[in-house]
C-alpha cells in the first residue's frame, strides 16, 4: 500500500461526486431519450457506475471499507439486472421482432398518444364495407330479382 505523502495531493471528494452526478445525468438522458431497449439498458449501467464511483469516493473520504464492499454488491445487482433484463429483451424481440420500446407498449394507458392497434384476425369492418358496395351495385341494376339469388347461394 503506497501512502501518499501529502494530503493535498489526493483527489478532492467534490470532483468525485461531481463526476458521479454528471455520469448519472448522462445515463438518465439515455434512458429518457432513447427508444432502443438495448441502449436504455446500457444507460442504466452508466447510472449504476456513477453510484459506484460516489460510493468509492466516500469510502476514501471516511476511511471505511464498507463503501467498497457496497460497490461489490452493486456490481452483483447490476449483473443480475443485466441477465434478467436481456432475457426480457430476447422474449420481447421474439414476440415483436423489434428492439424498440414503443412496439411493446401494450400495458400503457390507451388515451396517451397513438397506441399501436392490436391486429385481430377476421375484422368485421372490411366485410361489411364489401357487402354495402355490393348492395349499391345491385340497386343500380335495372332488374332486381335474378341478381341477389346467385349471390346468396354463393355466400352460403
Amino acid at each position: 500500500m503506497i501512502a501518499l505523502p501529502l494530503a493535498s495531493l489526493t483527489v478532492p471528494i467534490e470532483w468525485v461526486i461531481g463526476l458521479g452526478f454528471i455520469l448519472f445525468a448522462i445515463g438518465l438522458l439515455g434512458v429518457a431519450c432513447r427508444r432502443n431497449i438495448l441502449i436504455m439498458l446500457l444507460s442504466v449501467e452508466i447510472m449504476l457506475n456513477a453510484a459506484n464511483l460516489v460510493l468509492v469516493g466516500f469510502s476514501r473520504l471516511h476511511g471505511d471499507l464498507s463503501g467498497q464492499v457496497f460497490v461489490f454488491f452493486s456490481m452483483t445487482v447490476a449483473a443480475a439486472e443485466v441477465a434478467v433484463g436481456l432475457a426480457i429483451v430476447i422474449a420481447v424481440y421474439r414476440l415483436r421482432r423489434s428492439a424498440n420500446v414503443d412496439d411493446a407498449s401494450d400495458l400503457r394507458e390507451a388515451d396517451y398518444g397513438d397506441v399501436p392497434e392490436l391486429k385481430l384476425e377476421g375484422e368485421p369492418k372490411h366485410h361489411h364495407d364489401d357487402d354495402h358496395g355490393h348492395d349499391d351495385h345491385d340497386h343500380g341494376d335495372a332488374e332486381p330479382d335474378p341478381a341477389p339469388e346467385p349471390a346468396a347461394t354463393g355466400g352460403a
Binding site: A3, A7, R60, L61, G63, L65, Q68
Partner: peptide, 15 residues
C-alpha cells in the same frame, strides 16, 4: 468535506 482524507487499504486482502 473538510475532514482530512483517511488512509485506506483498498487491497484484495482488506476487502
Amino acid at each position: 468535506f473538510s475532514g482530512t482524507v483517511a488512509d485506506l487499504d483498498g487491497s484484495a486482502g482488506a476487502i
